[in-house]
Write a protein that binds this DNA or RNA. Structure first.
Lengths: 233, 233
DNA sequence: CCGTTTCGAGAGCACCGCTCTCGCTTGAGA
DNA sequence: TCTCAAGCGAGAGCGGTGCTCTCGAAACGG
């Protein structure tokens, strides 16, 4: 798709990338609230109005960073899943993916806050963000599906009131899995980011000391909540 | 403690409250990012510089709102706990408290985002916020402790690597409970807010439809993860 | 009653997002 | 190959922000 393009088009993509890089640098240094178009332009040797040729507003720049962040954390999850694949128990792959997401979050706290903290631009996420936002969830679903097809899983309980909802969920994004797994997966997915957010946003200050071991323990708990059985159980 | 005070002191506390009220109104209307000291002052018929007699900076105003929000959600949790107390099963009290926290969050989304979203002022929470921040956790701990003393609980698993951590945790803020309950409680606490945050921040868009039933189901799962047994199990 | 403290007002600084205009450059079509 | 529209960067400017400083008036405590 990346065909040979004229000097102008090439310059445009390069400058767009440079703007995003500088913005990401400022984001990492000071946080989203302090990210300023003028400072980005200044650092790039442009005047601030020139930047509006590339991003129509500050929020659009942030949206671009959000998409990139979703892709980055999704890729980290996918890589961890692929790397842990060979014959490992599904629950261990699950924990490995959780650990990869957490590691990415600890390494990129402000980018994590951008996507899993309070939504800063408006109230509704732009359409462009929903596809990359699902990559981590897709990885987690895949692990459970593989386990279900291979060795089977311990199907979780499901409240009767959620029967239809569970069937809709698995039909939509986890076909082949028992209905009870749908709500369990969604809950585990949300809870995973609750653990990471609390650690990152300081709620675990003076509460959790052994962060790594605690997280691994909690992630294993999430695995078992979706039916993945740990070896030796 | 609220002794009779001179006109000046009384005016000061009244104006301070008026500033916080107006700030809360703007927070609810537009979010923390759009909260402006000048707009608050304008609405109160003051000039912006006068506001600095009451709050030394915008971040200090936000901190005051944060403390109030922690108190509000904590009070909601305490009220739900007290209200559900009479002879109800501990797991049902647990779910009732979770539901109260979620209801408060849905009713005050921007205030929730202020305390459980990305920390906006700096990186470390001010000292004044840590005590009110723990009220919800205290309520949850109390439910488990009561259940443990009364009918007993199903002690969760505990990874050997977390033995010491679990003992430290229960010694510090849940004395009398088995060590395994410490990490389980902390994890459930974080996961509860993961569920609420995902719903509030839009991650459940087109994923979860039956929000109430789903949340109740997940909250019940959290209850059982800390050892609370549901009736009829 | 007087001196000190507290307070509100106003001007001002540096910065912000964003808009508009104006020339220069580029590149596609005649 | 020439032309002319489109893309681009620079600059000025608008209204807004957080925050500081000074000044005169009001309230308070000894």
């Amino acid at each position: 798709m990346t065909t040979v393009q004229g000097a102008r088009a090439r310059a445009r993509t390069e400058i767009t990338a440079a703007i995003k890089d500088e913005a990401r640098k400022q984001l990492a240094a000071e946080g989203a609230a302090k990210l300023s178009l003028r400072a980005v332009a200044r650092e790039l040797g442009m005047v601030s109005s020139a930047l509006y040729r590339y991003f129509p507003s500050r929020d659009d720049l942030l949206t671009a960073l959000i998409v990139d962040a979703y892709d980055a954390v999704g890729e980290a999850a996918e890589r961890a899943c692929a790397q842990a694949a060979p014959a490992e128990a599904p629950a261990e792959r699950w924990v490995a993916v959780c650990r990869a997401v957490r590691s990415w979050a600890l390494a990129h706290p402000h980018e994590y806050a951008l996507i899993y903290g309070s939504p800063v631009p408006g109230y509704t996420a732009p359409q462009a963000t929903i596809a990359p936002a699902s990559r981590v969830a897709v990885v987690l679903i895949g692990i459970v599906r593989d386990a279900h097809q291979a060795r089977g899983i311990a199907v979780p309980r499901l409240a009767p009131a959620l029967r239809a909802e569970g069937e809709r969920m698995v039909a939509e994004f986890a076909p082949g899995l028992p209905p009870a797994v749908g709500p369990a997966l969604v809950a585990a997915w949300a809870q995973l980011f609750g653990l990471i957010s609390f650690e990152l946003f300081g709620q675990f200050h003076r509460v959790v000391e052994e962060r790594d071991a605690f997280f691994a323990h909690a992630a294993a708990g999430l695995a078992s909540s979706v039916g993945l059985v740990l070896p030796g159980e």
